[in-house]
Design a protein around this nucleic acid. Structure first.
Length: 399
RNA sequence: GGUGGGAUGCCCGAGCGGACAAAGGGAGCAGACUGUAAAUCUGCCGGCACAGCCUUCGGAGGUUCAAAUCCUCCUCCCACCA
């Protein structure tokens, strides 16, 4: 089948690739596992990379098996240095899971039971008794655990590694055992974890799963991987204007990666964009705008993309006020003390910050920097109060 | 079980009796500039109607005119030895 090329397109690693080619050539539908711990409520464009890959499999008749890690999320994965992630409550996990699945719907084929199966890992993990847990731990050795790069680095650096962190890959592997995965997808940072699943399946007398990883998308800072805890993410359910703006905020150097991983453009199209940038025949600003439109169109539609770009120009190029601005009712005072208003309107965190921003000329009424902390009501009512470039509020007399 | 080291602001990390709301870096925010919410440069970066006051340096007490800094106990972490 020629479709193998599409499945492999954009993949980082496929282990083992020969087996993969053979299994696809057989033509039987595969069970394609993707695990997700609902520890945060959003689906980011980083997630979308692997989701879009999963969709490719669906489009060729393979079944997406989504594992919602409701059990593992509640235990709380402390991986990532000293961060002792707070334990999530059952209610939080459930609500995050619902949000995340909602985001998944934007990318995956959702209404066909032959192409989608959603499972919660508490179904099997919560039932394990101590004997079974011990049996599980007997299947892996410390040396195998220390093969994982971040474990060995932390161990070498005398940084703590909790026993529970060792359990995590095992539990994820049990998911594969439980659902009889043929192949597991994940970000490239999951390669080792997913290979534990392959290893474990063999030890439980199952046909070991294959593993495919996709590259990680950098966040809007252009340096670290996109993640909600770092705040450098673009969510698939972000509003069009916000989504467009966030794309415009990525460093120029990150554009190629975004074109490749976050848009639907074919690889050769991306190549020509990249070549154009390199020889100066296309403008980087225009290119980033195109990137923004492509991404907004993917998760909203083309009209929304055009509108988002127009709104961006209005605010940032023409330094005008957006068309739609929330209203805020002024307090009764006259004159009005602006730092207090800024705080009450949640444009700033504290009145101290408000004072500083006024002093820095960052607070504007109708585009004019305010001269001091106090203004008369007459100067304010009906006007737009602005902080920085992107925080606006319209002041009104009454609600 | 023993010995030694450590816990500092969103994160990393200096400080080890007064000059500490606490160096430096990162993140964040703002201003200038720009094709941009890129880059770069500059400033800000605990709170309070603020030239003053209040609350912060793991927790609780104590010494002192004065404590992030010294003492006591507690909690947690790390290393080495067993």
């Amino acid at each position: 089948m020629a479709n193998i090329d599409l499945l492999l397109q954009g993949a980082d690693k496929v282990v083992p690739e020969e087996e993969f080619r053979a299994r696809i050539a057989e033509g039987n539908p595969l069970r394609v596992k993707l695990g997700m711990d609902p520890t945060a409520p959003k689906v980011t464009l980083g997630w979308a990379v692997v989701l879009r890959k999963l969709r490719h499999f669906q489009e060729q008749g393979h079944k997406a098996v989504l594992i919602v890690g409701d059990f593992t999320a509640q235990v709380g994965d402390p991986s990532g240095l000293s961060e002792t992630r707070k334990r999530l409550t059952e209610a939080e996990v459930r609500s995050y899971a619902a949000n995340v699945l909602e985001g998944f719907k934007k990318v995956l084929i959702w209404d066909d039971d032959d192409l989608l199966e959603v499972r919660y890992n508490s179904e099997w993990l919560a039932k394990l008794d101590m004997g079974e847990v011990l049996a599980l731990t007997s299947k892996m050795t410390l040396a195998q655990m220390l093969e994982r790069d971040d474990f060995s680095k932390r161990h070498a650096a005398n940084q703590p590694i909790s026993m529970m962190e060792f359990m995590y890959p095992l539990l994820q592997g049990m998911d594969s055992v439980a659902v009889d995965a043929d192949i597991e997808l994940g970000g490239s940072d999951q390669l080792w974890n997913n290979l534990v699943g392959r290893e474990l399946m063999g030890r439980y007398d199952k046909r070991p799963q294959m593993v495919m990883t996709v590259p990680l998308l950098v966040g809007t800072d252009g340096v670290q991987k996109m993640s909600q805890s770092l705040g450098n993410y673009i969510g698939v359910d972000d509003e069009p204007a916000d989504m467009f703006g966030k794309v415009m905020s990525i460093p120029d150097e990150a554009m190629e990666q975004y074109f490749r991983l976050a848009t639907g453009l074919a690889p050769d199209e991306v190549d020509s964009v990249v070549a154009g940038l390199a020889d100066g025949s296309v403008h980087p600003g225009d290119t980033k705008r195109r990137l923004g439109r492509e991404i907004v169109a993917l998760y909203h539609d083309v009209d929304a993309a055009v509108d988002a770009e127009a709104a961006f120009d209005r605010v940032f190029r023409e330094k005008d006020v957006p068309e739609e601005v929330d209203e805020f009712v002024l307090p009764d005072d006259d004159p009005v003390w602006l730092p207090g208003v800024l705080k009450d309107a949640a444009l700033v965190k504290s009145s101290s910050e408000g004072k500083r921003l006024v002093a820095q000329g960052a607070v504007k009424i109708n585009g004019e920097a305010v001269p001091g902390e106090e203004l008369t009501r007459a100067d304010l009512v009906g006007h737009v109060l602005q902080v920085g470039k992107r925080r606006f509020i319209r002041l009104v007399e009454t609600a």
